[in-house]
């Protein structure tokens, strides 16, 4: 059976998206869900996205924003304002994953947007202006978020631990 252009693209871009998702999420299952949900949205808008000059970059931005949105919903659940029918919230800040790395623990201490800034800046190598565009904020906000995130990471983990 032949695959559609969307499927071809998704098989090619999926591993990269999953890597970014793995850095954004504490749990592999959350990262899988994040990629899955993003791919569904891409599928629904494929006619438009496929015409973009850099669809991968656009979808990466979708993924990051989806993550921020999902984290906000989860924190609302934790505050007791559960939506009717929503599954029970899981506190992903608990050290549920035994033996995970110092980096994972350090990243888990960051807020969703701070973590997104760290991943986009130091893994995806985006400029502060590109990150600001992706997150819908100013470059100044990006710089302050990055600065706070680094300070927090330094407090949580040393370079030796990360290595």
């Amino acid at each position: 059976m032949s695959t559609s252009p969307f499927e071809e693209w998704a098989h090619r871009a999926g591993p990269g998206l999953r890597r970014v998702a793995g850095l954004l999420c504490d749990h592999p299952a959350d990262a899988d869900d994040l990629v899955q949900e993003t791919l569904v949205k891409v599928y629904l808008r494929w006619a438009r996205i496929s015409r973009l000059e850099r669809p991968d970059g656009y979808v990466q931005t979708m993924l990051v924003n989806q993550h921020v949105s999902m984290r906000r919903s989860q924190s609302r659940d934790r505050r007791g304002r559960r939506w009717p029918g929503a599954p029970a919230a899981v506190d992903d800040r608990e050290p549920a994953v035994v033996g995970r790395s110092a980096l994972a623990d350090a990243l888990a201490g960051l807020g969703a947007r701070q973590r997104a800034v760290v991943v986009l800046r130091y893994y995806c190598d985006l400029s502060d202006e590109q990150i600001a565009d992706a997150l819908g904020c100013s470059p100044r906000t990006v710089r302050s978020q990055a600065s706070r995130a680094l300070a927090r990471l330094r407090h949580t983990a040393t370079a030796e631990e990360l290595g």
Binding site: S4, E7, G14, L17, R19, G22, P28, S101
Partner: peptide, 21 residues
């Protein structure tokens, strides 16, 4: 460097594409 190491450990499930469709 630590981010790249962690990223390299992430595995993509190809079945996710079919499920997304």
């Amino acid at each position: 460097e630590a981010l790249h190491v962690r990223a390299a450990q992430q595995a993509f499930d190809p079945d996710a594409v079919g499920r997304a469709v």
